[in-house]
Each structure stands twice: as structure tokens, then as C-alpha cells.
Design a protein around this nucleic acid. Structure first.
Lengths: 331, 331
DNA sequence: TTAAATGGAGGAAACGTTATCATGGTCGGA
DNA sequence: TCCGACCATGATAACGTTTCCTCCATTTAA
């Protein structure tokens, strides 16, 4: 690796001058040209490490996330990356591989790399994590879950689920089923289910245990959940709300195999606007959380915190939109 | 940020000793305990920049890729990440956002960060890029395209396309159409088409211009391509081979709208084993390139090159497998 | 003409580590 | 008893930058 000193020697100037050329200081045109020529010839690239050591800036943003496995996280990361790249930042990924304990470990790893900021895809909130973040003096934005004293960008999971259920009811459905996930996942598990329940309550509709089931985040468990609803229910629901699109796809598979027609016999809606949805037969009605907007917003928020250290934590709730497709009969 | 010196002062030892504690040198148990306690209390994390500056190692691998937008690239990156994480490496992403000129720019960015190695998702091969890589003295593995003097991991696009076409012929198809992409994309565009053509030639089957069309990488153009084949052909093909699954999905949509039944009227196969495929109706026959294996292999190769500097470039062709699903009638 | 202001350049310290070298003490073997 | 070996520690240089300070040579203003 060539260093600034070698460039300096070759150009017959001091390293300070080379540095000035690189950082737009006072340098005569003649010297500037000479130095630039040498840099060009040698292919010299300044060491970011030395730079960071000196300046305390790295132009790197750390992203801690459970896994790059859901469409939502990928869309978010992509938008994040685009927005940050515009400002000259690069992203370093720290994947926890779904292991909670690696969350803190990864945060420390990023801290040791002196990242200028962090984005945390928050899955859970435990005391140690909160403490760790609080004593971290690096700007951090959490996505997906609330963390006290930290700026966050969240979806309106509750509102979306409630509005979707309202829409089903408006279409005449009175027996509505629900396939959720564990309520330990506050956003996806708890809030979406509450939205569904509160809508039913507000409309004074029946809430039947047998119409609801709990699945995991995969296709098969969606299939199984639909099966168990089918087998347990004396009276089948006329519509089923799935907490994720993947679950909905599994449920749809089961219903098709059982020769139900969708939406005539049973209407089906998912959540998350997965790509698959539009190509299914029938196309899946779903909720679009516009993850790219989430990523962009988080990036902007982070940039703001970096530029204005010590500014107050912000809580940003993102907008969603319902996508009405053929898996529900619209009046 | 606390530094090693502050820790040293608090523990009443020299910074050398603290460093030894951190790096398993000779330290008495008593001192070790004392130092570790202070580290624990202060939450001290050593600066990777200072470390790297001194040791020349960063434990970071740079990944240059066009975009995190295809399932193939995501699967590959995930596997890459997993495999490298096992060895204590982190990944830094450098997204070119599909802009070719940013490829070289990104390579230099990573070079300035002194990454220990690079993975390049190669889309094109131009002279400047090749030169740049050659004079880069950092281990680099290219994925997807051949680059002279560089270790590569590639799919057998040609072989896979040819074998898939062979299989269709074995099922009795004699009129086989093809929807490809621009041949500028050597792997996806050129090689897959050649595999298709050579299979037909080997079986002395008719190759008709009107049975082939060129699409882009999206759904709509797959739809349009199928439409144009349909409208141009006097005699329709009995099977159509799409160079990507996305294209196949678009084609399927068109065929369904036109009330063709698949596979009875027309068989359809895709390429790439996209997730969607298995949930389509009918489920899509496709080629699985096992991208995770590609990622793992590239990671292993890179680690090898890092551990054995100067070792010879390797060319690794990955295996594929055909996935036979209902969009083709199997005898 | 002289003093002050300005432009251009070099020298050196500092950032936070690790690795090499040096030092002093203890222990075991001849 | 003495010497070499070994262990535990400290001092210091070096990694490659930037930035502050200093200095000299012009140019400008009075």
C-alpha cells in the first residue's frame, strides 16, 4: 500500500501538502497538479483507518438486523442504503441470525468500528439491550419496536389490522377468522391481533376461539393453521385475516386443496404486501407497509441525529395502505 | 470513548499489559482479573481502526453487487455472510445500484477501507475493471462471470439450460419456445439461450424465430414476450422455456388470461427457483442454482486466498438441479 | 517606504493500538 | 552458590492520516 508519505516524497512536498490537496486546502495550482499526477500514477488511496483514527468519522453506518430473510427487511435495507449512499455513507451489516443474544454483541462490534450511526431492526426489548443502547453515545434509530429514549420508526400495525378488519366487515363479513403469530413479537403478533379484535368488538361481532390460530412465519404453519380452523369450526368463518402474507399463502393452498373457492366461499387477506401476492390466483388482498419509506425515513432521521447531536428522540409512525385484490369480494 | 490508556491508568498497569490481557499474552491472573474488571465497568471496547492501522487486518470483507434485488443475490449474500461470520468476518456492502461505472468506484472505496478481501458480483467485464482488479493486491472472488486471472464461482447456465431443454424434448415436446434477456448479460442472456439452442440442434428439432422473444428482468416484459410469441406464431410451441422465473410468471399470467391450460396446452418452465414458483398454480418447473452453495463456496475460496496469499486463481462451476413441478406434464 | 495582511508551504503532534525490546525478579539445575 | 531460563511487566516506536503552529515570501494598504 502506498502512503501519503511516499506520495509526498515523489512530489517533493510535505505530507501536509498532499493532505491539503486531498482536502481542498490552500495549495498552489502548480503543486496541486503535480501531486494529483503522482496520485493518479500510483493509484494511491488514502487509508480510511488512519483517517478515522484522526478525525473520528468513518462514514459508515452499522445495521443490526435479525436476518436478511423477509421481503420487508430487504426493502427496508435497500432504501436505507440508497438514502445513506447519497450522503456518502456506507453500510456495514451485522446479522444476528435470529439469535437474540447476538444483538448486544453486534452493537458492540459496530461500536468498536466507530460507526457514525446505527440502525437497529428491533425484535424484542429486554432490559440489557435498552441499557446498552442508552450508554452508547452513537446515534441510533430503531425500526419496528419502541425502545425508551430512542428515536424509532414503526409501522401502524394496530391501525392497519383494525382498518383491514373494518373493511371486511363493511363488505358484509360477520364471521372473521384470524391467523397470527406469537404475541411475544409485539408488532406482528400482539398489535395486529389487537387491531383485529378491537374491530370486531367495535362492531359487536362474535369472537370465536375456534376461528383463530397461531402460526409461525412460514408457509407450512399457515397451511396447518388454516387446517386447524377448518377442522375445529362447526360454522366456518367467511373471511380469514392472516398476520403475514406467507401465512396467507399457506392458508390459500389448504383452502384450494379442500376445494373452497376464494373469495366466494371464504375471503382471505394477508399482511405485508409480499411480491408473491399479486401473482397468486386469486391475487391476495393485503396491507402494504411501504417498507422503502420506512428505510428512507430511518436514514433521514439518523442523518439528522448525526448532524445535530443531542437532539430529542423522535417517534415516527409510518403510513400504510390497503391493497384490495381478488381474494376478497368487493361490493 | 475510553481508550486503552485510561484502562491502564485505572488498573495501575501499562497499556502494554492491557493489550496483553486482551490478546492473551503473559499476564498474571491477579492483574488479568483487575484489568478485566475495569474493562467491564467502563464498557471499554478497543478501537478497530487503531488496531487495523497497526495490524493491517480488518476482519471486514467487502461485497460489491449491483443491487440487493433478486432472490438469487439475496440468498448468495446471506450464505456468504453466514460463512464469513463463522470466521469472525463482517461484511460491508457496496451497492452499485445497477450503475456500471460505480463498480470501480466501489472497489476503490473498499480498498481504502483496507478490507481483507472482496466478493464481486460481476455483471459485465470491461477492460478497466479487469485492470483495476489485477493491480489490486487484495484477495477477490468474482461471482457470476469469468474474469481473467481471478478466482471465480459461476453457475453452469449453459449446461442447465441445455439439460432442461433435453428434458422437455424427452417428454415429447418438439416445438419449444424461449424467452430470454439481452445477450449482453453473458450468463443469463447468452449462455442460457445457447444451451437451449444447442439442445434443439442436437435433437435436430426446428428452431423458429417466432417462438423466441426477448424480455427484461421483470414480470410485465415476460407477459408481453409471451403475448408476442402467441401473436406471431402460426403454430404455437407446446412448451416455453423462460430464462428467469419472473419472466415465466409473466408468461403464465398471459397464458391463463388467454385460457390456455398449463401444462396441457402449453408447458412452461422457468429458471432460478424463485420462491414464488412453488405457490403458483400450476407450480412452476424450474432450475435451482442453489445460490446458498454459491455464497458458501465463494466465502470458502476467499478465506483460502486470504490464508494462502498468492495461491493460484480457481474456477469453480456450481451444480444445479432441475425442479420438476406441475407446469410440465411428466410422463 | 514600511507595516500589515495574505497565501503557500513544512514540521510535528496526536489519534489508539500492537509488537519489539529491555528490565528486573524468581526459580531450578549443575 | 551461581548462572541461565523463564515469567511478568514497562517503555517506546510505528501504523497513516489531519491539524495546528510556525515560517517565509508576496502583495496590499497607509
Amino acid at each position: 500500500m502506498t502512503t501519503i508519505k511516499e506520495i509526498a516524497k515523489l512530489a517533493n512536498v510535505s505530507s501536509s501538502t498532499v493532505s491539503r490537496v486531498l482536502n481542498d486546502g490552500y495549495v498552489s495550482d502548480e503543486v496541486r497538479r503535480r501531486v494529483l499526477k503522482i496520485i493518479e500514477e500510483t493509484g494511491y488511496v488514502p487509508s480510511e483507518h488512519a483517517k478515522s483514527l484522526r478525525t473520528k468519522r468513518t462514514n459508515v453506518i452499522g445495521v443490526v438486523l435479525p436476518r436478511l430473510n423477509t421481503e420487508a427487511s430487504i426493502r427496508t435495507v435497500n432504501a436505507l442504503n440508497d438514502e445513506l449512499a447519497k450522503e456518502g455513507y456506507q453500510i456495514i451489516l451485522a446479522n444476528t441470525n435470529l439469535k437474540q443474544e447476538k444483538e448486544i454483541e453486534n452493537i458492540n462490534l459496530l461500536k468498536s468500528r466507530q460507526v457514525d450511526g446505527m440502525i437497529l431492526f428491533a425484535t424484542n426489548r429486554n432490559r440489557r439491550l435498552t441499557d446498552e443502547i442508552r450508554q452508547l453515545n452513537i446515534p441510533l434509530i430503531a425500526i419496528g419496536q419502541e425502545i425508551p429514549d430512542v428515536s424509532i420508526v414503526v409501522n401502524d400495525d394496530y391501525g392497519a389490522a383494525r382498518e383491514m378488519t373494518d373493511r371486511l366487515i363493511a363488505q358484509g363479513h360477520e364471521r372473521i377468522g384470524f391467523i397470527g403469530v406469537t404475541e411475544e413479537d409485539h408488532a406482528v403478533g400482539y398489535l395486529r391481533k389487537q387491531g383485529y379484535l378491537d374491530s370486531l368488538k367495535a362492531h359487536r361481532l362474535e369472537i370465536k376461539e375456534e376461528w383463530t390460530a397461531e402460526a409461525h412465519f412460514d408457509f407450512d404453519s399457515g397451511y396447518q393453521a388454516m387446517k386447524s380452523i377448518r377442522e375445529q369450526s362447526v360454522h366456518l368463518p367467511t373471511a380469514v385475516f392472516a398476520a403475514t402474507d406467507t401465512i396467507a399463502v399457506g392458508a390459500m393452498q389448504y383452502l384450494k386443496e379442500q376445494h373452497f373457492s376464494i373469495p366466494e366461499d371464504i375471503a382471505l387477506v394477508g399482511t405485508g404486501n409480499s411480491n408473491i401476492g399479486q401473482y397468486l390466483d386469486p391475487a391476495l388482498t393485503t396491507i402494504d407497509f411501504q417498507n422503502a419509506d420506512t428505510g428512507r425515513e430511518a436514514a433521514r432521521l439518523l442523518l439528522h441525529h448525526i448532524q445535530h447531536p443531542g437532539s430529542k428522540p423522535v417517534r415516527k409512525v409510518m403510513r400504510y395502505r390497503l391493497i384490495e385484490r381478488d381474494s376478497v369480494l368487493w361490493l
